[in-house]
């Protein structure tokens, strides 16, 4: 593993996501250099309310990911509702309307697996609270590509099935509380 300022961060969360993200993303410092990609399970008909909510609290730019957009340092991208978000090898973003994975679109597995392909060891994957098993296969792909895997401590998580499933698939993942995840991420992307 090779955690440097050239890293990219992918985060997946489901039930309880808003509170968890509010504990992590606003702590990222101005000058943070890693792009951050986030998949949260939201109902397909809902506009992504998380973007304006988090933009109001974060020092970094928060936006909805656009198709073919090039990743920029220190920008937080959210997958649009009802689309999968993927990363291409040339580090541009791609959307797809392929069928749901783990009953989810966007799916955490789809983002994490494509990001693991694109970034290999320069990737940090974070699985937060959630009530399903999406993200377990994705985090495993991150580990297999040599990246860093972090799972929110099930003792702290609002919903535990997602952290549990991720830990079962990737037993070597680091287990952290939200404040530890926040300081870990803040340290890795500082300019």
């Amino acid at each position: 593993m090779n955690v440097t300022s050239s890293s990219t961060v992918v985060i997946g969360a489901s039930a309880g996501a808003v509170q968890a993200l509010l504990a992590v993303l606003p702590t990222l410092p101005a000058g943070f250099t890693a792009p951050v990609l986030v998949v949260v399970h939201v109902p397909p008909d809902r506009d992504n309310v998380l973007v304006p909510l988090l933009q109001a609290k974060c020092r970094l730019t928060v936006k909805e990911a656009e198709d073919k957009e090039a990743l920029a340092p220190g920008v937080i991208y959210f997958a649009p509702s009802d689309y999968h978000l993927l990363v291409e090898a040339d580090r541009t973003l791609a959307l797809s309307t392929d069928e749901p994975v783990n009953y989810s679109r966007p799916s955490i597995d789809v983002l994490f697996e494509s990001a693991a392909d694109a970034y290999g060891e320069n990737l940090v994957g974070v699985i937060l609270t959630g009530a399903n098993h999406d993200g377990a296969a994705g985090l495993k792909a991150v580990v297999e590509a040599g990246g860093v895997a972090i799972v929110q401590s099930p003792a702290e998580a609002y919903a535990t099935p997602m952290p549990h499933a991720a830990l079962q698939a990737s037993p070597t993942a680091l287990i952290m509380n939200l404040d530890a995840i926040a300081s870990y991420l803040s340290s890795l992307g500082a300019a």
């Binding site: 993927l86 291409e88 090898a89 791609a94 392929d98 789809v110 494509s114 392909d117």
Partner: peptide
């Protein structure tokens, strides 16, 4: 075609 999706498929 966008390669990441093709690879998944």
């Amino acid at each position: 075609y966008a390669r990441a999706s093709i690879k998944r498929r």
